[in-house]
């Protein structure tokens, strides 16, 4: 295991800051409307190419919509989808993980079986069929992703809970007659928070890629929304004549996910030394696999061929 640099990854921080600013201030930053285009100005190349127009630095798409403006608005979709999906999945997973780890016994056995099954499902396939059958919509995409994401939280939080439970302060609280709910709330949960923060960050990239994939396949965020995956799909048929339609949104996605992943790694090293033993190898096998006890295969499966 190579020693990691402990410095804050400034590049990642910068990209993320830019992303958040873009998402929050999209209406003020974007020079044009993300959904309305001028057909007269369709397929204008980026500014540095012949025929480029300074009004559209990254060119326009086949409906004359400004690519830059769409990317800026698209950051909002990526951000909101990942925040909401991770919020829902994180809450559900944390609750189940806490209960499972603290109660132990049969509750634990049943919940962890469920978690194992959840982790073993072929994510993309299930997501595709779920969204397709239930009409692609913003809400459905978020729900499906959350549904596929909670086991990752549950598994990790349960492991943490098991470790924290062994501490004396928990035993003392039990002796003092505190209820299980009180102990979980006051003693266990606060100790799980750093780990939660790390897993959540490590999942953001995964969620953005998953949403992008679904949108690209036409079973995600519905058009004419400026989702990055949709934009890439839009440009698919025009690679030869208007490559900028697909290139730039993909670049935005790559940069974002890269930045989030680097930030997640850094956070993990800083906040949660215990997770570090997972090491680069397992992390490589699957960005999502942060649990030390998982078999590596599942991580590969979750990632290979998928985003």
């Amino acid at each position: 295991m190579s020693p990691r640099r402990r410095r804050l990854p400034w590049f990642a921080g910068l990209v993320l800051a830019a992303l958040v600013v873009a998402a929050v201030f999209a209406p003020y930053l974007a020079p044009h409307s993300p959904t309305e285009g001028d057909l007269i100005k369709k397929s204008i190349p980026p500014i540095w190419m012949e025929g480029g127009n300074p009004e559209h630095p990254l060119g326009t798409d086949r409906f004359g919509r400004d690519v830059l403006s769409r990317i800026i608005w698209g950051s909002r979709i990526s951000l909101v989808v990942s925040l909401v999906a991770i919020g829902v999945a994180g809450t559900l997973g944390t609750l189940l993980g806490l209960v499972s780890g603290y109660r132990g016994g049969r509750t634990d056995a049943v919940l962890m079986r469920l978690t194992d099954i959840g982790l073993s499902l072929p994510t993309i396939l299930i997501a595709v069929v779920m969204v397709a059958v239930s009409e692609p919509s913003f809400r459905n995409v978020v729900l499906v992703i959350a549904l596929l994401l909670w086991p990752r939280f549950a598994r990790q939080v349960r492991g943490e809970t098991l470790a924290i439970k062994e501490h004396d302060f928990v035993a003392l609280a039990v002796v003092a007659g505190r209820s299980s709910a009180w102990i979980i709330r006051r003693h266990i949960f606060p100790n799980v928070v750093p780990t939660l923060l790390v897993i959540s960050t490590l999942q953001v990239g995964y969620v953005i890629l998953l949403e992008g994939t679904l949108s690209f396949l036409g079973v995600g965020v519905p058009p004419p929304n400026p989702a990055w995956g949709l934009m890439i799909a839009d440009g698919r048929g025009f690679l030869a004549t208007a490559w900028w339609m697909s290139l730039f949104p993909g670049l935005a996605m790559l940069l974002t996910v890269l930045a989030v992943n680097l930030m997640g790694d850094w956070l993990r090293d800083h906040l949660d030394p215990r997770l570090r033993q997972v090491g680069p190898q397992v992390e490589l096998l699957g960005p999502a696999v942060t649990q030390p006890e998982s078999t590596p295969a599942r991580g590969i499966a979750a990632a290979s061929g998928e985003p």
Partner: peptide
């Protein structure tokens, strides 16, 4: 190469390969 692999959308990689090698 490995870090990029984690962050790159597969479908985009495919399209860019088509763009470069095909077009």
């Amino acid at each position: 190469f490995a870090v990029l692999g984690q962050s790159m959308p597969t479908f985009w990689l495919g399209l860019m390969l088509i763009l470069f090698f095909g077009v």
